[in-house]
């Protein structure tokens, strides 16, 4: 018998390789380009839409509209891209070649995650970046037209808050990507993973109701079920800080940090569960 093979150590380099390749594949997909153009196009066209704005102030409207595009198309992109990039490896059998190499499945799953996370990061950065440019442009015009406006630090809107909300949305998409990856790791079809991804997205947005309802439910088994639901799913409503921009004192840094930590914990947790589920998957 030969001496035992030295252990194959977990390698960040391999993980990043998988991530880089996933990113490359994603940005070449029509879906990414389509959703990005749609979101960026919509944000850019806010100039036209503001003509129809009745409800809120112009800058608030631009920020609202921009984050609307970010949340809506970002969620779609995250779920669709995660499922697609995972199943393209399985269905095209490139996973067969890759996983037959000395690579840990943990590296594969987290590599896939990081690739998607980077893609969604680019999406968020471009959308928020464009939004900031538009806000600056309109802010200048408004300030010139109304010299007696009350400014905070020389601005009508807090740009740091815009960036914070953008980053937190990105982290929320990270949690969503990790959840979709967990679903994909045990499901047999892309469509199932996408449908379930959207379904879980809905539940996570309604999770807060289960927490609120817990105290009001009197039937014991239902009460426990509601309580369980409140604990099992992460609270996505927590990331909804866009409404706080330009309201009162704006976004509290400590609150933002807590939300970010919450997202990172869930990304790690769902990622590890995806690895656990994928570890014994037959390729």
């Amino acid at each position: 018998m030969s001496a035992p093979e030295p252990r194959v150590q977990f390698s960040a380099d391999r993980l990043l390789l998988v991530a880089g390749n996933t990113f490359l594949e994603a940005v070449r997909q029509k879906l990414f380009v389509f959703l990005l153009l749609l979101a960026v196009g919509l944000v850019a066209s806010v100039q036209v839409f503001r003509e129809f704005n009745f409800g809120s102030s112009e800058l608030k409207f631009i920020a609202d509209f921009g984050f609307g595009a970010l949340v809506f198309f970002g969620s779609t992109l995250t779920i669709a891209a995660t499922a697609q990039l995972f199943f393209s490896e399985i269905e095209n059998r490139t996973a067969l070649t890759l996983l037959a190499k000395p690579i840990w499945r943990t590296e594969f799953i987290f590599g896939k995650f990081l690739g998607v996370f980077a893609v969604v990061g680019v999406f968020c950065a471009l959308t928020v970046g464009l939004m900031i440019v538009l806000l600056r442009y309109r802010e200048q015009a408004i300030m010139e037209a109304n010299p007696d406006l009350v400014l905070v630090n020389g601005h009508l809107i807090n740009y740091a808050d815009i960036v914070i909300v953008g980053v937190l949305q990105w982290l929320k998409f990270g949690v969503l990507a990790a959840i979709t990856l967990l679903i994909a790791s045990y499901s047999n079809s892309n469509l199932f993973a996408v449908v379930m991804g959207f379904f879980v997205l809905l539940i996570c947005h309604l999770q807060y109701l289960a927490r609120d309802a817990y105290g009001q439910v009197t039937i014991l088994p239902v009460r426990w079920l509601v309580r369980l639901l409140g604990y099992v799913f992460p609270n996505f409503q927590l990331f909804n800080l866009a409404d706080l921009i330009g309201v009162g004192a704006g976004i509290d840094g400590l609150v933002a940090l807590r939300v970010a930590a919450y997202a990172l914990i869930y990304i790690g947790l769902f990622g590890l569960l995806a690895v656990y589920s994928f570890r014994h998957r037959e390729i």
């Binding site: 839409f49 129809f52 704005n53 009745f54 409800g55 809120s56 409207f61 920020a63 609202d64 509209f65 921009g66 984050f67 609307g68 595009a69 970010l70 949340v71 809506f72 969620s75 997205l201 809905l202 996570c204 947005h205 309604l206 807060y208 109701l209 609120d212 996505f236 409503q237 909804n240 866009a242 409404d243």
Partner: peptide
């Protein structure tokens, strides 16, 4: 109402501003 609001807020975010305008 809470379910409706929760979903609109969560999924449409600020997008509901323009939708409401239309």
């Amino acid at each position: 109402d809470a379910v409706g609001e929760g979903l609109t807020v969560g999924l449409l975010g600020g997008f509901r501003a323009i939708l409401a305008d239309f």
